[in-house]
Design a protein around this nucleic acid. Structure first.
Lengths: 194, 194
DNA sequence: GTCTATAGCGCGATAGAC
DNA sequence: GTCTATCGCGCTATAGAC
């Protein structure tokens, strides 16, 4: 009846869920295989290693983020550019399981510390933050911009039984984030002319 | 020359560092023992299990947070109470390795999912967030208050080579957090009277 | 493309000497 | 209070049949 996708993408889906729910190290390939009704050996036909499964759903998410960064680096460092970065970032969140992957990453930071794709993601996130303020800005300004970015993720894990749609969550987060970067820009301005 | 503390507290210190740096599951007792120049068996004299090491530095941090919650629950739900919650929370951060423990927790959420003390900590954090807004508040208001709390932690991992002192970091975060709860309270007010 | 079977390893934890 | 030695387990990964 229902399209389940090929085995490869079903492995990705189940692995992402279990890695996020119980942790990357705590989830064995046996558990993933069992939930899919296959054996561990079958997983090794589709993926070379356990890390390889992670890399498979990390790659295109990194590319999507990089696209935003590349665009912004070709723009003037204005408040309007920063607003547009947040809008594009918000649009990403609801597509292609992006926020699920980000959640997985956030929850498994240490376990994936030396994983190349995950290091890449962390680097990109720092770059995005540097787009929202300037490295030389005072600390409170920097804090504001980093929490602006965090707001985009926080919206997914507060009041989880509140019955909100993905769009309502994105809109709420974007509103808060925009307010924060505008306030941060104004504060940075004040600190320069002071 | 230098006071190193007894073995028990040295184990706690090294374990906290390694668990935070490389992850709870990824850090073996062998690694901890090696860094201390003892054997695994020695650790088992001081702690019953690996989880027990975690519990040992989690307990008093949960108690410290609970103290803030208990105080606030005996106060009127005013903006001034919320401001004071943030001030007390900020004061906590610089004492007793509090922010290190919180960082360890944040980075190992999934691995510690079924760990009683860590569940307790997560519950308390949700309670603190509920002190800063009201459960019925609109989503953007809720987002603001949760990122206000997050700001207190974010300040420790941005611009890590910026040469800031702990006090500068705390002050910056507190300023941002106070601004956010005040703005959130005003927004909640507006949404009620609208 | 999925199976059975197993190699090989490092883990958490314990027993008992000193 | 720390040691050596070891147990038993579950893990990632592989070999080879079907």
């Amino acid at each position: 009846m229902r399209e389940q996708g090929d085995t490869r993408s079903r492995i990705q889906q189940v692995a992402l869920e279990l890695f996020t729910e119980h942790g990357y190290e705590a989830t064995s390939l046996r558990e993933i295989a069992e939930r899919l009704g296959v054996t561990k050996a079958a997983l090794y036909y589709h993926f070379k290693t356990k890390e390889d499964i992670v890399a498979s759903f990390m790659e295109d998410r990194a590319a999507a983020l990089q696209e935003i960064v590349t665009w912004a680096q070709g723009q003037p460092r204005t408040v309007e550019t920063r607003r547009e970065v947040l809008r594009r970032y918000a649009a990403l969140m609801t597509s292609s399981r992006h926020h699920q992957v980000m959640r997985f990453l956030e929850r498994n930071q240490t376990a994936l510390r030396s994983h190349p794709k995950s290091e890449r993601m962390r680097e990109i996130m720092y770059t995005v933050m540097d787009l929202l303020s300037s490295p030389g800005d005072p600390l409170p300004v920097r804090v504001k911009c980093s929490v602006a970015l965090f707001a985009m993720h926080a919206t997914w894990f507060i009041d989880q039984d509140g019955g909100y749609t993905d769009d309502e969550r994105t809109d709420a987060a974007l509103a808060v984030a925009l307010e924060l970067v505008e306030s941060a820009a104004a504060e940075a301005e004040r600190s320069v002319t002071r």
